[in-house]
Simulated assay, not measured.
Amino acid sequence: MWKAAKVVKANPDKAQLPVREAALREHKLLYMAVPKIATLKPFYLLDSAKVDVEAAASKRAADVAPTVGPDTMQPVDMVVCGTVAVDRRGVRIGKGAGYSDIEMGLLAEAGLLGPKTVIVTTVHELQVVDGEIPETEHDFRVDLVITPHEIIECPSAPRPPGIIWKHLSQEKISAIPALSSRYATRVQ
């Protein structure tokens, strides 16, 4: 799946830096979320023809890569997300701020996630829990859990439906430019 993926979206966390570096070394088009989705165009466009592998680090990407919004992005073949804990069904817990869910919602609303988009997380085996993690409507599941010693294929699950506005506070919407601009047009 990795070899077949031409367009990869990854989070900016340090734990996924080796994945982002590999994507650039292998000449994949890489989208990396801007930390905290803090810009109107919430993703860095990392094209190995235009940036070096060091651009995979979020601080370097901010200096050399343009930001883009979902309206100008290509469909995504693989999403690599960060995770604090994940169960064997693919239900995951992030760091708690909801940024990954919002990033996925933005991509889903733009039609950039299809049924063949593979959603992956890379974790230490201690982060894989045997019990079931509770999930909500805005959570997304992963298709694969990759640990240093195991690849866990998870049961197929529906893709994220988009932004679930009722789950977002006005404070959260206001703090994320890509959300506040969409919210303004949504309520008009």
Rank of each mutant, 00 (worst) to 15 (best):
residue 117 T to V: 11
residue 92 R to N: 14
residue 14 K to G: 05
residue 84 V to N: 15
residue 178 A to Q: 06
residue 31 Y to H: 11
residue 49 A to G: 10
residue 188 Q to V: 03
residue 83 T to L: 08
residue 125 E to I: 02
residue 98 G to N: 09
residue 62 A to G: 07
residue 28 K to F: 07
residue 162 G to T: 07
residue 131 G to A: 11
residue 32 M to T: 11
residue 1 M to R: 09
residue 153 E to D: 09
residue 179 L to D: 04
residue 186 R to T: 04
residue 28 K to N: 05
residue 18 P to L: 00
residue 184 A to I: 04
residue 36 K to S: 15
residue 169 S to P: 03
residue 153 E to R: 12
residue 62 A to F: 04
residue 147 T to E: 14
residue 23 A to Y: 07
residue 12 P to G: 08
residue 109 E to R: 12
residue 50 K to T: 05
residue 105 G to Q: 10
residue 66 P to G: 01
residue 44 Y to W: 12
residue 114 G to S: 14
residue 45 L to H: 09
residue 108 A to G: 11
residue 171 E to K: 03
residue 84 V to T: 15
residue 58 S to Q: 14
residue 132 E to V: 10
residue 21 E to Q: 14
residue 2 W to V: 01
residue 6 K to V: 02
residue 183 Y to G: 00
residue 103 E to S: 13
residue 109 E to M: 10
residue 60 R to D: 10
residue 146 I to F: 11
residue 164 I to D: 06
residue 85 A to F: 13
residue 66 P to H: 05
residue 11 N to K: 05
residue 29 L to W: 05
residue 143 D to C: 06
residue 12 P to N: 08
residue 125 E to H: 14
residue 163 I to Q: 02
residue 119 I to K: 00
residue 128 V to G: 13
residue 34 V to A: 04
residue 93 I to S: 10
residue 108 A to S: 15
residue 3 K to T: 10
residue 20 R to A: 07
residue 145 V to S: 07
residue 155 P to C: 00
residue 79 V to R: 01
residue 175 A to Y: 09
residue 71 D to S: 10
residue 188 Q to A: 03
residue 138 H to Q: 14
residue 95 K to V: 02
residue 125 E to F: 08
residue 182 R to H: 03
residue 166 K to N: 07
residue 124 H to I: 03
residue 110 A to I: 12
residue 100 S to P: 13
residue 162 G to W: 09
residue 132 E to Y: 06
residue 169 S to N: 02
residue 69 G to T: 03
residue 124 H to E: 14
residue 57 A to R: 10
residue 74 Q to T: 04
residue 183 Y to P: 00
residue 113 L to Q: 12
residue 187 V to Y: 13
residue 6 K to F: 00
residue 102 I to D: 06
residue 109 E to N: 13
residue 68 V to Q: 09
residue 53 V to D: 13
residue 162 G to Q: 09
residue 174 S to P: 01
residue 73 M to V: 06
residue 143 D to E: 08
residue 124 H to F: 14
residue 180 S to Y: 02
residue 114 G to E: 12
residue 110 A to D: 10
residue 103 E to F: 07
residue 28 K to D: 05
residue 180 S to H: 07
residue 39 T to V: 11
residue 71 D to I: 00
residue 69 G to R: 11
residue 168 L to Y: 01
residue 133 I to Q: 08
residue 177 P to M: 10
residue 18 P to F: 03
residue 3 K to H: 13
residue 132 E to D: 15
residue 135 E to W: 05
residue 175 A to V: 05
residue 53 V to G: 06
residue 142 V to R: 04
residue 158 P to E: 02
residue 102 I to F: 03
residue 11 N to I: 00
residue 154 C to D: 02
residue 137 E to D: 12
residue 147 T to I: 04
residue 18 P to T: 00
residue 139 D to Q: 06
residue 61 A to E: 07
residue 31 Y to P: 09
residue 80 V to F: 07
